[in-house]
């Protein structure tokens, strides 16, 4: 494993920890999109179908379990926890799941490396992960005022994606036959979706002011 990949996984892990910390200690999920969190739970559930059939490494299995458990518990907190769920911006978080799920599923049925259930689900999870942040970005745009933890959560997710691109470039030059167009293109699309957010995040950081997105 190269340094970019490890750093990518660690920022991904940190994003989840920041979010759980916000929910668990402040008992608030204000500014967090339940739609995005549900899509992530679906992403992990469909991508890690191999968790009990193909052993890759202990690291791999443990990380998969962490991402599955954390994504489903975040959804549980936001839907079921009697205090946390009250802070959910339900009226602002109106993005429709199906608008993202259906096109990704159709695309995965036609574009995949092998037409098997596991492989189509894996490809679907890549496409869906690429766009799963959209409801969150829409919610940020609507609420405009973003608290520090929410800003850090989205920033860490974006950093994870950027580091994965560096990981692919590194692997392409160091490993033979490492060509994965589906992964790369969907990963690139996903990272580009954060570009706008990053621009405002760095500006607010540089000018040392509270992060605020334009209307």
């Amino acid at each position: 494993m190269n340094i970019f990949r490890l750093a990518g996984d660690m920022t991904h892990l940190m994003s989840v920890i920041v979010l759980l910390l916000k929910i668990h200690t402040i008992k608030s999920c204000a500014g967090i999109s339940l739609k995005t969190q549900e899509l992530y739970a679906l992403v992990f559930a469909t991508r890690y179908l191999d968790i009990f059939t193909d052993f890759i490494s202990l690291y791999n299995t443990i990380m998969k379990l962490i991402f599955l458990a954390s994504s489903f518990s975040i959804v549980w907190y936001m839907r079921q926890h009697k205090i946390v769920r009250r802070s959910y911006d339900k009226d602002q978080d109106t993005f429709r799941h199906l608008f993202l799920i259906l096109p990704c599923l159709l695309l995965a049925l036609f574009i995949n490396e092998k037409f098997t259930f596991k492989e189509v689900m894996w490809t679907f999870s890549l496409f869906l992960e690429a766009v799963a942040i959209l409801p969150q970005l829409v919610l940020l745009q609507r609420t405009r005022n973003i608290d520090n933890l929410t800003g850090q959560y989205v920033f860490l997710l974006g950093a994870y994606r950027a580091l994965y691109i560096l990981n692919w470039i590194y692997r392409y030059f160091t490993e033979p036959h490492y060509v994965h167009w589906i992964t790369w293109i969907s990963g690139l699309v996903q990272t580009l979706l954060y570009a706008d957010f990053f621009y405002y995040y760095f500006n607010s950081w540089k000018n040392n002011v509270k992060l605020q997105l334009p209307a």
Partner: peptide
């Protein structure tokens, strides 16, 4: 094939 390389990623 997709079953090698990239499948060790998360």
């Amino acid at each position: 094939s997709a079953s090698t390389g990239v499948k060790d990623e998360l």
